[in-house]
Simulated assay, not measured.
Amino acid sequence: MWPSSQFLDFPGGKVAFTSEMRFISESPKERIPCYRVLDDDGQLIEGGINVGKEIAVKMYSDMATLQTMDTIFYDAQRQGRISFYLTTIGEEAINIASAAALTIDDFVVPQYREPGVLLWRGFTLEQFANQCFSNRGDDCRGRQMPIHYGSKKLNYLTVASTIASQLPHAVGVAYSLKMDGKDACAVTYFGDGGSSEGDFHAALNFAAVTEAPVLFICRNNGWAISTPTSDQFRSDGIVVRGEAYGVRSIRVDGNDTLALYSAVRAAREMAICEQRPILIEAMTYRVGHHSTSDDSTKYRPVDEIELWRSARDPITRFRKWIESNGWWSSEAESELRSNVRKQLLDAIQVAERTEKPPLVDMFTDVYDAVPSNLSEQEKWLRETIKIHPQDYPSDFPL
C-alpha cells in the first residue's frame, strides 16, 4: 500500500502522484495496427478462420448483388428516373460481413451507406426499388428520400440524413435492450466525418457510463464528402478515441471480409456478455462519389480512386479466397450477376409503374387520431392543388 501522500483518492479511482512534470504526447510514436486476415491476393495470412462454405458464399453473393444494385440504381438516377442515390462501392465488405456476424434480434441504427445489412437480412430487390421510386409499395410511403430505408420487421431503424444523429439513438436502444435483459445488442454505423460531430462524443461517453451493449462501427473511408481526414482531426484516426471515453476498441481492415466478420462477431459477444460498448474502426475507401450530387474527381486524384477500385477491391479479394477453396467459379459468377441484373431491372420497371401513395399519407401514422392542425393543413393543400393543378403531377392520387 502506498502512503496516502503518494496518491489522490479521487472519485472514480486512485491517481498516483509524481514529481516529474510530463505531458501526455499528442500522438503515439506508432500508429495503432490494423487487424487483417486476408492479404491483397485473397490468401490467408496465418491461422485458421471459422467461416464455412454456406455463409462464405452468401457473403460473396450479397456483396456482388449490392455492387450490381448500386450500379443500376446510380444509372437510373442519371437517367432522371429517381431523384437521388448513394452507393456503397468499395465498402461492400463492411456492409455484408458485419451483417453476417449479427443476429436478427440485434437492432441496426444505420447512417445511409449500409443497405447491404438490409439485403443480408432479407430485404428484397423489389423493396429497394419501391423505396427509391417512392410508390405505394414503399414502407415509408414516399416520405423519405431515396436510399433512406427502414424496416421494423428486420430491426433496421429508418435512415436519417443528419450526420451522427443516429449514434445517441443507438445507445438508447442498447440501454433499453440491457434493461429488458435481451440477448441482443444495438449496432450503429457512421463515417469518419460523423466522428467530428458532437453526437459522436456524447454517444461514446453515454454508452461507456451506462455500460450499454452497443457496437459503434466507423467506416473510415478517408473523406467526409470533400473533406479529407487530415483536415478533420490530428489523432490517429477514430480508434484511439475509444480509450479516452473508456470504450474497448479495435482497428480492422475494412476491405477484408473475413477480418470484419471475425471482429464484429467477437465484438458482439463482448458487448452482450460483458455489457459494454465496443468501437470498431474499419479502414476502407469510398470508391464512388459521395452521392449523385457529388463529383469526387474535383477534390480527389483520379489515380487514387482507380488504385482502390482495381487493386484493393474487397469483392475481388474475397472472391479469390472462396475460389481457392473451390466454393466459387466463373460460371457461378456469370449466373449470379445475370440473374441479379434481370431481377433488379424487372423490379425497377414494376416500381416505376406503380402508383404513388395517396395524398392523405402525408398526414397519417404520427398520431392515433389526426389532430386539427394537420387536418387543416391537408385541407389547405387540397385547395392549393385545385387552384394550381399545373404545378402537381396529373397522375398523383388525391
Score class of each variant (00 low, 15 high):
Met1Phe: 09
Gly13Lys: 14
Val15Ile: 14
Ala16Gln: 05
Phe17Ile: 08
Pro33Met: 09
Cys34Asn: 09
Leu38Met: 04
Glu46Cys: 06
Gly47Ile: 02
Ile49Phe: 07
Glu54Arg: 07
Ile55Asp: 14
Tyr60Gly: 00
Met69Cys: 08
Thr71Met: 11
Gln77Phe: 02
Gly80Leu: 04
Gly80Ala: 10
Ala101Glu: 07
Ala101Tyr: 08
Leu102Val: 12
Ile104His: 08
Arg113His: 09
Glu114Phe: 11
Gln127Thr: 11
Ala129Asn: 10
Gln131Glu: 14
Arg136Pro: 02
Gly137Cys: 00
Asp138Gly: 04
Asp139His: 04
Arg141Ala: 14
Gly142Val: 00
Gly142Arg: 02
Arg143Lys: 09
Met145Cys: 02
Ile147Gln: 01
Leu154Ala: 01
Tyr156Glu: 00
Val159His: 01
Val159Cys: 00
Ala160Gly: 04
Val173Cys: 01
Leu177Val: 00
Leu177Ser: 04
Lys178Asp: 09
Asp180Glu: 15
Gly191Phe: 00
Gly194Met: 02
Glu197Ala: 14
Glu197Arg: 12
Gly198Gln: 03
Asp199Phe: 14
Phe200His: 05
Thr210Glu: 11
Val214His: 02
Leu215Pro: 05
Cys218Gly: 09
Arg219Ala: 06
Gly222Phe: 13
Ala224Gln: 14
Gln232Pro: 07
Phe233Lys: 08
Val239Lys: 04
Glu243Trp: 01
Arg248Cys: 05
Asp256Ile: 06
Leu258Arg: 03
Glu269Thr: 15
Glu269Phe: 11
Glu281Ser: 03
Ser293Arg: 01
Ser296Tyr: 02
Arg300Met: 04
Pro301Val: 01
Glu304Gln: 15
Ser310Phe: 11
Pro314Ile: 05
Ile315Ala: 08
Phe318His: 07
Arg319Phe: 03
Trp321Pro: 04
Ser330Leu: 12
Leu336Gly: 05
Arg337Gly: 03
Ser338Lys: 15
Val350Ala: 15
Glu352Met: 14
Pro357Tyr: 01
Pro357Ile: 08
Leu359Ile: 03
Thr364Asp: 06
Ala369Leu: 02
Ser372Arg: 14
Asn373Ser: 14
Asn373Met: 07
Lys379Pro: 05
Glu383Ser: 10
Pro389Glu: 11
Gln390Glu: 15
Tyr392Ser: 08
Leu398Gly: 10
